[in-house]
Design a protein around this nucleic acid. Structure first.
Length: 590
RNA sequence: GGGGCUGUAGCUCAGCCGGAUAGAGCGACGGUUUCCUAAACCGUAGGUCGUGGGUUCGAGUCCCGCCAGCCCCGCCA
């Protein structure tokens, strides 16, 4: 429908220009204000331009609408596309597409693997920075949203024809390694020389102990700082210990990524280490650097701190070390220059908004971000428990991502087994494992993606695994129903056949829903809001379920039968493609 | 103190560039199965869009004030 809407928009503009040449002469832009109809009885689309033009033209909106419509009716391309427009209410122009044009659009999509979604006219290298767990810690629920949302955005951008680089900016450098290595030297030295001599769970415990000592023990703190200096200075023993810790964490992360089908290139903080001195040097030569309390800082414009003074962004600590702001600045430069990125997207929690605003401002003032670059922080809210507070285990610990995924699959397994028992069905273990794994993981992903990412998100196994409502199981079930039709003799692969012929309102409702897909995907790309795609897929599933419930497919006679099979096929293709953009695989049976 | 985000039905949430009577889902209540998987479908009830102003032909949406919740604010990331 993207193309159709474009055509209509152009036709409306031409009609407006013909009806009101004085406005054109005055240089004012003529926006038809073409939007989807607010209610089905108003047709497919509505143009609201007449209301806005009433004031400047000094005419009644309905009269303006009538003049535009009179011009439209002169346009043969328009009358071939739409039924005669209706003017309603204060001056809305309601447009209804001709059914045969809708059918032709359906036909055109049947053989189209992109389902009408165009490749972007201006493909760019886009970097999506997401997930970003910390070495020597386990992935926890806090990494869930970044990982799932980032992966979805990367998939959408890729599908639109961009070259996407998925970067995992893991926390693999800095103060925490000094304290961890120092602590391990004293309590478990073998962990620093022998691979896998302690498992990750132990490492996490050691990390906690190290952090505690660092915060309370001055002598330990000093030793830890020396250790950081040794590491950053390239000391061989320190580097070997650090490498072992990284390898071990990396393998653990990869297990999660494999389960969730997420591809990522690791490029952690350490990668930028050699580039840090140049960042500070170049900020100095750009005249932005100021020494304050012994630290090298850039004072921010338009941001004031507690005392009313401008806020500084520290890029070099008073001890000479660099911090995450320095790393992020180095990363921006490297991504724009070495990677040639036109666009960089950071998928991190909303709490980092001011940090990124500061870093972007400094990079811009230093001239590193050009006018043709687009750098976005894509923030998201906290994951909360049922109580509305930050999600924790009963004992008060952060929830491990692995445990969360396990529980989702366990619950899906229990649901499925209960259902099999109730229905007297018998399925083998492989089927149960496959279905429960797919449903459980899909539920976790979908629940996260389906709310607007900016708001906090209330995590609930019961809600996400519900078989009804806006959930992954509901969408997966729609696909399964179509697969069932195919098994019972419906040939979904046939592309040729009698001309498509539709008669039922449920068919037309489904068609209109199907044809929105291209618009929605492009919108998600622009707004970076996956929940728009989720809403669409849910509404599509609802339209399909109504159609399935009320209109027979296999029992109908041709041409209705083959036309309805075509709708089934296009629905399944749209759901599969849409879900794949969310990172969710589908099932044939469940 | 400064800044950010949020506030819409009992609960969880949509609401696009400001457009017609504010929408879903869950839960509640009532119905539908000799028919392609009822993991479905149909219906009913449920709203002062936090609050007070302003802009506009028109405001849940834009601007200002206030209230509430969460988050951030110099050498952690």
């Amino acid at each position: 429908m993207l193309q159709v809407v474009q055509q209509l928009d152009a036709q409306l503009q031409a009609a407006m220009a013909a009806a009101f040449p004085t406005v054109v002469a005055s240089g004012q832009p003529l926006d038809p204000q073409l939007v989807p109809a607010s209610r089905p009885e108003f047709g497919d689309l509505q143009a609201n331009a007449a209301l806005a033009l009433a004031r400047p033209l000094g005419q009644k909106p309905r009269a303006i609408a009538e003049a535009i419509v009179a011009q439209l009716l002169q346009d043969q391309a328009f009358t071939a596309l739409c039924l005669p427009p209706e003017i309603a209410g204060p001056g809305f122009i309601n447009l209804t597409l001709r059914p045969e044009r809708l059918a032709a659009e359906v036909q055109a999509r049947l053989g189209d693997p992109r389902l009408g979604v165009p490749e972007t006219a201006a493909p760019a290298t886009v970097i999506v920075d997401f997930s970003s767990p910390n070495i020597a810690k386990e992935m926890h629920v806090g990494h869930l949203r970044s990982t799932i949302i980032g992966d979805c955005l990367a998939r959408v951008l890729e599908f639109r024809g961009n070259r996407v680089l998925r970067l995992n900016h893991v926390g693999d450098w800095g103060t925490q390694f000094g304290m961890l290595i120092t602590h391990l030297k004293q309590v478990a030295p073998e962990a620093l020389t022998t691979a896998d001599s302690v498992d990750l769970g132990d490492l996490v415990a050691f990390y906690r102990e190290a952090k505690q000592r660092f915060d309370s023990d001055g002598a330990f703190q000093a030793t830890a700082r020396e250790e950081v200096v040794r590491l950053q200075g390239g000391d061989a023993d320190s580097l070997r210990a650090w490498g072992l810790l990284c390898d071990q964490s990396r393998r653990e992360f990869q297990q999660i990524y494999d389960r969730l089908d997420i591809r990522l290139n690791e490029r952690g903080e350490s990668f930028y280490n050699p580039l840090l001195p140049a960042v500070v040097a170049d900020l100095r030569s750009a005249g932005l650097l100021v020494e304050d309390d012994g630290a090298q800082v850039v004072f921010l414009e338009g941001v004031s701190g507690k005392d009313g003074r401008p806020m500084p962004l520290i890029v070099q600590k008073s001890d000479g070390g660099f911090n995450y702001a320095t790393t992020d600045l180095a990363a921006i430069r490297h991504r724009l220059d070495a990677d040639g990125a036109g666009r960089v997207i950071y998928v991190t929690d909303a709490g980092q908004a001011s940090h990124f605003a500061a870093v972007f401002q400094v990079a811009r003032r230093a001239g590193w971000i050009g006018d043709d670059h687009r750098i976005d922080h894509v923030p998201f809210g906290l994951v909360q428990g049922d109580d509305g507070k930050k999600l924790k285990t009963r004992s008060g610990d952060t929830v491990r991502l692995k445990d969360l995924l396990d529980e989702a699959v366990e619950r899906a397994t229990a649901d499925l087994q209960r259902r099999l028992t109730d229905e007297g069905r018998h399925e083998d273990e492989a089927f149960i494992t496959q279905v429960a794994t797919t449903v459980g993981l899909a539920a976790v992903k979908y629940a996260d993606l389906s709310t607007n990412r900016i708001t906090n998100y209330q995590f609930s196994f019961d809600r996400m695994l519900a078989l009804t409502g806006n959930t992954a199981p509901y969408l997966l079930y729609a696909v399964v129903r179509i697969a069932g039709i195919a098994r019972r003799g419906g040939d979904l692969a046939a592309t040729a056949g009698p001309a498509l012929s539709f008669s039922e309102p449920q068919e037309w409702a489904l068609i209109r829903e199907l044809l929105r897909f291209d618009t929605v995907v492009v919108e998600v790309e622009h707004e970076l809001l996956p929940n728009r795609l989720c809403s669409y897929l849910f509404e599509l599933s609802q339209s399909f379920n109504r159609f399935y419930d009320q209109v027979p497919v296999l029992k109908a006679d041709d041409p209705a039968r083959s036309s309805r099979l075509a709708l089934c096929r296009l629905t399944a293709d749209t759901l599969r493609l849409g879900l794949s953009l969310l990172g969710i695989p589908t099932l044939e049976r469940m």
